[in-house]
Computed example of a mutant assay.
Amino acid sequence: MNRIAQGLVLVLLGAAALGSSAFSELYLNYVQAAFRPFLIAAGLVLVVLGALVVAADLRAAARGEDGEQGHDGHDHGHDHHGGPRVAWLLVLPVVAVFVVAPPALGAYTAAASGAAEAPDPSRVDLSEYRDDPFAEAGDGPVELQLQEFVSRAWTDEDRAMSGRTIELTGFVVPHPDGEDEGWYLARLQMACCAADAVVNRVLITDEPAPETDSWWTVRGTWDEPEGDLQSVRDHRFTVEEMHQVDNPPDPYE
């Protein structure tokens, strides 16, 4: 692989970063929205560096040709040989980004990772979501993120969700023990990027399992457990109605 090819690879990498962040929301499959400016900046830097490498090598090649014409074929020490051919394999990941963009994490990751663990109640501030979503909703259904629902189900000793109609949205994860045990409505929560994502989920047993990885909005009630909330492994949810929805642009919470 010669320097021109190396420069083109840099340009392609930069274009891939720009295409997924500046001109689409594909980057949300991998990182938080706050990283968008950094991805755009990195893409621009790669494109500029790649273009400079290509331009410099083309100028050097042009100067070398002029020198050879003026000195009757004397070799001026220019190395016109590229690197090993196997280096061209570096182009394959770049092409793959354009042809087959990796999807967001879904049911396979959620099933393999298992559910998030119960947090320390003293470290959970439910007001970081909303001060009182149940007062805001009046007697109507309360729309909650799955992470908020799970946090409240584990830590809200006042059990403010008890008896309230709640609306949740997530994707379908099959139960590892089979359909007879129900299925999970899940959502992945990430602090930085997809690599640190944790699973928030609720167990549904009163409806047949839809297609894995399909997205649904369910409306129903929390199956309030008896005893210590922290001892609950799977938060259960009774469905009153549900309907399929499109995959959201940002699949994470």
Rank of each mutant, 00 (worst) to 15 (best):
S113V: 07
S113F: 11
G114E: 07
A115H: 11
A115I: 12
A115Y: 08
P119C: 06
D120E: 12
D120P: 06
D120H: 09
D120G: 10
P121I: 05
P121S: 06
S122I: 08
R123N: 14
V124W: 03
D125C: 03
D125G: 03
D125K: 08
S127L: 08
S127C: 04
S127I: 01
E128Y: 11
Y129G: 13
R130C: 04
D131I: 05
D131E: 14
D131C: 00
D131L: 11
D132K: 03
P133R: 00
P133E: 00
F134N: 03
A135P: 00
E136Q: 13
E136F: 09
A137F: 02
A137T: 04
G138H: 03
G138W: 04
G138L: 07
D139G: 14
D139S: 14
D139W: 02
G140L: 10
G140Q: 13
P141F: 05
V142C: 02
V142R: 00
V142D: 00
L144P: 01
Q145K: 13
L146A: 02
E148L: 02
E148K: 04
R152W: 01
A153L: 10
W154L: 05
D156N: 09
D156E: 09
D156K: 08
E157T: 15
D158E: 15
R159S: 06
R159G: 01
A160W: 00
M161C: 09
M161D: 10
S162Y: 10
S162M: 11
G163Q: 07
G163H: 08
R164D: 02
R164T: 02
T165Q: 14
E167A: 15
G170C: 04
F171A: 05
V172W: 04
V172G: 05
V173Y: 00
H175A: 10
H175Y: 10
H175R: 09
P176A: 09
P176E: 12
D177S: 15
E179W: 03
E179H: 10
E179S: 14
D180V: 12
D180A: 15
E181N: 13
G182C: 09
W183D: 05
W183M: 10
W183P: 07
Y184D: 00
Y184I: 02
L185Y: 03
L185V: 07
A186S: 15
R187Q: 13
Q189P: 00
Q189L: 15
M190F: 09
M190S: 07
M190Y: 05
M190V: 02
A191R: 15
C192T: 13
A194F: 10
A194P: 04
D196C: 03
V199N: 14
N200F: 14
R201H: 03
L203A: 06
I204F: 01
T205P: 01
T205N: 08
T205E: 15
E207G: 00
E207Q: 14
E207M: 12
P208R: 10
P208Y: 10
A209G: 09
A209K: 14
P210L: 09
E211V: 13
T212K: 12
T212D: 12
T212R: 15
D213F: 01
D213L: 02
S214I: 04
S214R: 08
W215Q: 04
W216S: 06
W216C: 08
W216K: 08
W216H: 15
W216Q: 11
T217F: 02
T217V: 10
